[in-house]
Design a protein around this nucleic acid. Structure first.
Length: 163
DNA sequence: TCGCAGGGCCGCT
DNA sequence: AGCGGCCCTGCGA
């Protein structure tokens, strides 16, 4: 069995971001983002195949400024059906450089009244960037919140030339 | 289980 | 600004 937990760490000094990826077996459990004003260039040491795939994914996002066509294998069993619906809609319907409001997203999943529940689902997003929760903002273009901190949400939106 | 409080919201005062 | 209502969770009894 390949069922151990491994943490892969990627450094992206150009955006002052460190990405930590928790890998278990052949699925990603969680992704965490950390910001540091000064981030020294380090060689990324990848331990797993999945880590290499994730590196490919994030390099495409940060260097080529686009979301790769392939989706990283995520452990969907960790989230509720409602979260799944929110996340998958977001992945398929809101591409790089676009935004959507909490309300619009709620409408898309077929429940116009669930905007608040959508916000709650997003607050628990285990896979930021892969599930682009940073592209969800308030209806009047307010920023909304972000589980890894508002500054990182701003940073990602600026990276996508939004705001 | 059931009830309840609280959330990355929204719209009406 | 403030408030009530909306839907989903997590927690405590």
């Amino acid at each position: 069995m390949n069922n151990y937990i491994e943490i892969e760490t990627l450094y992206f000094p150009i955006v002052s971001l460190r990405v930590e990826i928790k890998v278990k077996g052949d699925l990603i459990e969680k992704i965490s983002l950390y910001q540091a004003k000064i981030l020294y260039k380090k060689d990324n040491k990848i331990h797993t195949k999945l880590g290499a795939l994730a590196q490919n994914f994030f390099e495409s996002y940060f260097f080529k400024k686009k979301t790769p066509l392939f989706l990283l294998p995520l452990n969907w069993s960790l989230v509720s059906d409602f979260q799944k619906k929110v996340y998958k809609t977001l992945i398929s319907d809101v591409p790089f450089g676009k935004t959507i409001s909490y309300l619009e997203l709620a409408k898309k999943i077929g429940n116009p009244n669930a905007c608040r529940a959508v916000g709650q689902a997003l607050s628990k997003n285990p896979w930021p960037i892969v599930v682009p929760c940073h592209r969800v903002i308030g209806k009047q273009n307010s920023l909304g919140g972000f589980s890894c901190g508002i500054p990182i949400k701003k940073l990602l939106l600026q990276h996508e030339n939004i705001f």
